[in-house]
Design a protein around this nucleic acid. Structure first.
Lengths: 124, 124
DNA sequence: ACCAGATATCTTGTTACGCAAGATATATGG
DNA sequence: CCATATATCTTGCGTAACAAGATATCTGGT
């Protein structure tokens, strides 16, 4: 994928760090409805999250590899008459369980953050 | 600080990764009401977040150092007649600005996650 | 016919950060 | 007098996001 044109790379920000640990949840969620191939996921995330959850292919492919290696997704190659071969991923049974687990962990974490940021920080 | 006794270290989970990038926000938020020292923050987080945002001292001190080095917090040593010397941290002006920025970035990210997880993942 | 660009995958190296583990020092209670 | 609580700091490990580069196929324009 071509790197985004000039746009605003001013802040390398903490967005990169925030994504840590949430990407697997994101990918598993996206696969929970049906199969998809890597490049498709990259473009879908770029378009559908308004830049909030953008991912480069150099980031996504290792994620998919990790998920496959862990048995959470299964793979199918498809080589159409015309076009580049695509590698389709789909959730496995244990992938669905993992999705539920990650979803729960995310909710716990995000809930704790929300709760903390809401209260007046009276440390003492 | 002594490492927690046996308890449940079964899942090293993704909690570690999720904390990435959010710790600075957490600390700046905790300091936004008044000053505090490191050990105090560690125990406060352990008690007040029900394990959701626990942090060890080996994690927190480098965070504080980073924040100090960036000029977001200022430091004051206090050596009471009795007791171990304490290093008190307080927000600076630019620390307040940074807090606002991080808060905004967190809201954007958490919002994008919530939005994504809410929708049916119709990739195509 | 050719070449730029889109489509599609994979790999290597860099960087940053959370954390375990260990070190140090002072006060307190049995 | 010694274990425990309080308080700080440091080193090394593992991991994951990403930039950058490589490769290959198809499409569109001139």
């Amino acid at each position: 994928m071509a790197p985004r044109p000039g746009e605003d790379d001013d802040r390398k920000g903490i967005a990169r760090e925030l994504k840590r640990g949430s990407l697997e949840l994101i990918v598993l969620h996206l696969l929970s409805h049906g199969e998809a191939y890597g490049y498709e996921i990259v473009t879908a995330l770029t378009e559908r999250s308004n830049g909030g959850l953008e991912v480069t292919d150099g980031t996504l492919y290792p994620v998919l590899y990790r998920l496959e290696r862990a048995g959470f997704v299964a793979v199918r190659w498809e080589t159409p008459q015309r076009g580049v071969p695509r590698k389709y991923y789909r959730l496995t049974k244990s992938g669905q369980a993992e999705l539920a687990r990650l979803r729960h962990e995310w909710n716990t974490f995000a809930g704790a953050m929300a709760s903390l940021l809401r209260q007046q920080p009276e440390i003492t």
